[in-house]
């Protein structure tokens, strides 16, 4: 009887170790981040932006690094780069109000008016619920509900009559919560893994009807405009705006979020 328990504990330990394993060089990244903050505070924005780039090159995909990098680039008047950095930060920490504020602020300075999908108060509230949690927190919440549901069932096997009712109620609530939460989480995971967006980094970028300058020129986008990437064709990206307008743009004129 004891041996299976030992095996289970060892397996659990290995799982936790595996999850905690493979950390990037966070001390080096942190040092670069602090150096960037110091440079920014002294008004050396170019140096600060370089230090933040070094921090995430060391493997720290931390929203704070991208946020601060966005601030430095904004001060340097590189609105495209700033918006790209804020978008990256928002992808990692969607509920952070500072990131949202600075992103909107930077967008208000660009030439092209951002195309926002039409929404009402209800859809906005649903969207806020959907987009307002970090993906990591969402995953562990879902796992917690999942484990709680099974724990309730296990408790029900050993509890008395009253305890069994409570255990089943707990289990049903946990599984219902999981069922309600799963679509949002699934969409978020899909968005994280598949949805790709690009930000125009040059003052002006042309969009053509095909992957080349020989095709019809459709329109021009200016620095900071954000597109959804549909596909990549060599040096060209097929992109579209939320209103459906799209075309092919040179990949080197953009940065991918």
């Amino acid at each position: 009887m004891r041996r299976p328990l030992h095996i289970a504990f060892i397996a659990l330990g290995m799982l936790c170790a595996e999850i905690a394993w493979a950390k990037p060089d966070l001390p080096a990244a942190t040092a670069a981040f602090r150096a960037g903050n110091a440079a920014y505070e002294q008004g050396r924005y170019e140096e600060a932006a370089a230090a933040y780039a070094k921090a995430h090159a060391a493997g720290a995909a931390d929203a704070r690094v991208y946020y601060n990098q966005g601030n430095a680039l904004f001060r340097l008047n590189r609105l495209g780069g700033a918006i790209l950095a804020y978008e990256r930060a928002r992808k990692l920490a969607p509920a952070d109000p500072d990131i949202e504020f600075n992103l909107r602020f930077a967008r208000s300075r660009i030439v092209d008016k951002p195309v926002e999908p039409a929404s009402n108060a209800f859809t906005q509230a649903v969207w806020n619920l959907h987009a307002g949690y970090s993906l990591r927190a969402g995953i562990w919440t879902a796992f917690g509900l999942f484990a709680l549901g099974f724990a309730g069932l296990a408790w029900g096997l050993f509890a008395g009559a009253l305890g069994r009712v409570a255990a089943v109620a707990l289990s049903v609530m946990a599984f219902c919560g999981l069922l309600a939460f799963s679509p949002s989480l699934w969409l978020r995971v899909r968005d994280q893994e598949t949805a790709r967006r690009a930000v125009v980094l040059e003052p002006v970028a042309e969009l053509y009807s095909g992957p080349g300058e020989k095709y019809e020129l459709l329109f021009r986008a200016h620095e900071g405009t954000v597109f959804d990437i549909v596909e990549r064709r060599g040096e060209w990206l097929s992109v579209k705006l939320p209103d459906g307008k799209g075309g092919f743009i040179r990949a080197r004129k953009t940065g991918e979020v």
């Binding site: 950390k23 966070l26 995953i139 995971v189």
Partner: peptide, 14 residues
């Protein structure tokens, strides 16, 4: 220390 926010749990077999 900084975090690695992109390292999500489901990227690991564990």
């Amino acid at each position: 220390l900084l975090r690695d926010d992109a390292d999500l749990p489901y990227h690991h077999a564990g």
